[in-house]
Design a protein around this nucleic acid. Structure first.
Lengths: 110, 110
DNA sequence: CCATCATATCAATAATTCATGATTTATGGA
DNA sequence: TCCATAAATCATGAATTATTGATATGATGG
């Protein structure tokens, strides 16, 4: 993850529909959702959703996979990890004592 | 951190200068940097930087504090934690097994 | 093949965002 | 009080981004 990838990812997440899509796909987990399902779930027109999915894909935040006539989308956790790592690396490198509480507070309460 | 705050934060980080500022302030740690220092360090005009700092502040990503004639800026780690937590909460809630690797991979290598 | 369904791409307009010169506000020193 | 410094605000033009109707591509079943 370099600076330009990070910029693209943040831009992707700065739009309401796209943020909703990403969180929806996080919830969907390994099942993912077909493009049309996503559009229906969020009440967004098909071509608008297609464009927004393309932005998320380009940004490395979602993956997709053709499945018959549909294309199924998944949250890309590798890309997500890269983004968060990029954001926090400076903090962790220079000031781990300050950074650690940020990390630990978002750990899954398993 | 609600959806609108998260959108504002992602929008703030989606602009090159602002991303650079945020990372610079993470590196600066508790010392922070004066607004003018930041503008000089990144070779950005004073009023442009002022506007960008205002966006980051509004988004809850930086704090500031007047210090004589200068205003000193700091990365706001509470705001940052809120943002990351918001982004990952759905994943953690429904799919902690998938989410955990994302979290642990960004932990500080102390 | 042909019809249909699912998704992507295109073209055009509307809306938002950005950078900047000029100006204003706030602070501190003489 | 007057001046100098530091930062914020304002107004404007340029560039980017979003949405949408129309159309194209790709896959499946008959």
């Amino acid at each position: 993850m370099d600076r330009n990838h990070a910029l693209a990812a943040f831009a992707a997440l700065s739009q309401p529909t796209r943020l909703d899509v990403f969180r929806l796909l996080l919830r969907a987990g390994v099942n993912g959702m077909a493009a049309g399902e996503i559009a229906d779930a969020l009440d967004v027109k098909q071509n608008t959703m297609s464009a927004n999915l393309a932005v998320l894909h380009q940004a490395g935040l979602v993956r997709n996979q053709r499945e018959g006539r549909s294309i199924r989308y998944f949250a890309d956790l590798d890309g997500t990890r890269g983004l968060l790592g990029f954001l926090m690396e400076d903090c962790c490198g220079g000031n781990p004592d300050l950074c650690q509480p940020v990390i630990s507070s978002i750990a899954c309460a398993s």
